[in-house]
Amino acid sequence: MKKIIFGMPTLIELDTLEDNVKLCKRLGLNFIELNMNLPQYQIEKIDIRKLVEMQRKEKIYFTFHLPEEIDIASYHEKIKRVHLDTIREVIEISKIIKSPIINIHMNLGVYFKMPDYKIYLYEKYFNEFYNSILNFRMLVEEWIGDSNIKISIENTGIYNFDFILKAVSELLISDKFVLTWDIGHDYSSGEIDTKFIIDNINKLKHMHIHDAKGKDNHLSLFSGNINIEDKLNIAKNTGSACVIETKTIKGLEQSVRELEKLGYSLGDSNYCT
């Protein structure tokens, strides 16, 4: 049997954590990625004791997907401080529940739209941006300490921006940072991110897997144009856990059925608290 640890995102179709856990168990998945864009998964609403109890009882685990508006380099110091404090608090929760991954998007920041091109402020004022990146790396190393938590940087079709590549490369110098490969985002952006990820394949530890056709992604596995088996082989070779990020119950069910047809063993996690 082929061994990959598979998980699911919290679904907008399911209003409670309990309902997501029930689906996770029914499908034989190993973990749930808590999407902090949703109101019920804000820090002040997270019941840490409930998470610990669910992990113990159900033999699953939880990871975190930080809010997509997180901006670690904002020129507005008060706004940046709130975002950094959010990450610090999620790290503290992750220590308690022994969560291995905190997923984060890089933020392009504000741009000025000129008549025929855009000026990105992080590119224009790169030194300030770069100093924020270095400071973030230092803070994360301090906050995580000797725990096994990783901040996993997800591609979003922006690895064609030199200032983003420089920032991510600086963060990956630290062993506290790894890469998430969202294969659907990558496909729909024209595989803009592929080269950087392959060049840094030793840092790949997490994957968001879903199929895509053109700009349409988050499709059930094997229903689009992505070579899913190729990506699963990469997951196996790098030891990357995979979130089946299809967004719907139906899509998850279809994806799990297809994985089982290929001989993947679900429900056999090597990580639980």
Rank of each mutant, 00 (worst) to 15 (best):
K3F: 08
K3H: 12
I4M: 05
M8G: 02
M8K: 03
T10P: 01
T10V: 05
I12E: 08
I12S: 08
L14Y: 02
T16S: 15
T16H: 12
T16C: 11
K22H: 08
K22W: 07
L23W: 05
K25R: 15
R26G: 00
L27P: 02
L29A: 06
I32M: 09
N35L: 14
M36R: 03
Y41F: 15
Q42T: 06
I48G: 04
R49F: 07
L51T: 09
L51K: 06
L51W: 08
V52H: 03
E53S: 15
E53R: 14
M54V: 05
Q55C: 11
K57D: 14
E58Q: 13
E58M: 13
I60T: 08
I60C: 07
F64R: 06
L66P: 01
E68W: 14
I70Y: 07
H76A: 05
K78L: 13
K80V: 08
K80F: 03
R81T: 10
L84E: 05
D85M: 13
D85W: 09
E89G: 00
E89K: 15
I91K: 01
I93K: 03
S94V: 09
K95E: 04
I96S: 03
I96W: 06
P100K: 10
I101G: 02
L108N: 12
L108M: 14
F112S: 10
K113Y: 05
M114A: 15
M114G: 11
M114K: 13
M114Y: 11
E123T: 05
Y125R: 06
F126I: 01
F129W: 14
Y130N: 13
I133P: 00
L134W: 01
L134V: 11
R137C: 05
M138Q: 13
L139I: 07
E141R: 05
K150I: 05
S152M: 06
I153A: 08
N155Q: 08
N155S: 09
F163L: 05
I164L: 14
L165H: 00
S169I: 09
L171G: 05
L171W: 06
S174M: 11
K176A: 11
V178N: 11
W181I: 01
H185M: 07
S188P: 00
G190R: 10
E191H: 07
I192N: 02
I197T: 06
I198S: 01
I198W: 10
D199R: 15
I201F: 01
I201V: 15
L204S: 00
M207L: 10
H208L: 09
H208V: 06
I209Q: 03
A212V: 06
K213T: 12
G214R: 12
K215V: 09
K215I: 11
N217Y: 14
N217V: 03
N217F: 15
H218R: 07
L219D: 01
F222E: 04
S223K: 13
N225L: 10
I226T: 01
N227V: 03
D230Y: 13
L232Q: 01
N233F: 08
A235T: 02
T238V: 08
T238K: 14
G239P: 04
S240E: 07
A241W: 15
E245W: 03
T248F: 01
I249L: 08
L252I: 04
V256Q: 04
R257M: 13
E258H: 07
E258D: 10
L259M: 06
L259G: 02
E260G: 00
K261T: 00
L262M: 10
G263P: 04
L266S: 00
D268I: 10
Y271R: 06
Y271D: 02
T273V: 10
T273F: 07
